[in-house]
Design a binder for these strands. Structure first.
Lengths: 121, 121
DNA sequence: TTTATATATGAATAGTTGTTCATATGTTCA
DNA sequence: TGAACATATGAACAACTATTCATATATAAA
């Protein structure tokens, strides 16, 4: 496919030892992909606001839409993303659906990032 | 702009008390925006792999490109994003630029997410 | 100074994503 | 049963993003 020892940057590394060492410690490709997907879900203003809200109280779709001053359908679409990522769970009571965080770890991830923000970085 | 007490979901909340309580505890809009921006940077496979690599060793652009089997320009572009987010710092040695994580907290954020992944969620 | 090379960057492009609108689904109440 | 309503969802669209290619910049070596 390509040369192994060509002198150009695009083809071979400068510090082979460092590259080899890091390569050996790399998590599985699939794990890093999943991890990126997880952070991607946190990486949207609407979803992070929903996650914070649900960390404070169980809420129905309608309440979330009102709180964030957004359309109900927009909230529903984002709740679906959060549901697929297993970040939220829900229970139905009549026609009202109540959402909450799936587990405590989700708040921990939020807090870890929030702490970083507060440090003024 | 709109009614305050209309019976429709899109216009008013169902549980006013819960909404009010959550609203009072909400972080500043700007903080949540910045937090989402932070997670967004973590939310890309290329960037998360770069961040992990740099958590293991200081590396130059060329080495990172080789390690991840990607074009040098793609790595440079992503390093710029990481630089702007203040997640990485760099030092120049001749024409070689060595990148490393800006502080330990960045690895902590990575780990918090990684732990969540490993728990099979 | 010329050549080689490590990195940075602008433009172009393809792929992705978030919101809205319209509407469907399912539940409650009259 | 029919009307009201909470939620879900598909299609459309605008905005954003990651990569590539071409090229610029800067440093080092010849």
């Amino acid at each position: 496919m390509q040369d192994q020892q060509a002198p150009h940057c695009d083809v071979s590394a400068i510090h082979t030892d460092v590259v080899d060492q890091v390569r050996d410690s790399m998590p599985l490709e699939e794990e890093l992909f999943t991890l990126a997907e997880l952070f991607k879900v946190f990486g949207d203003t609407t979803r992070i606001r929903i996650l914070y809200a649900l960390s404070q109280a169980e809420m129905c779709v309608c309440d979330i839409a009102f709180l964030l001053d957004m359309k109900q359908s927009a909230i529903s679409h984002q709740l679906r993303v959060l549901k697929q990522a297993k970040l939220v769970k829900f229970r139905k009571e009549g026609r009202v659906v109540y959402y909450s965080l799936d587990d405590d770890h989700i708040k921990a991830i939020f807090d870890q990032g929030y702490q970083h923000i507060l440090e003024g970085k």
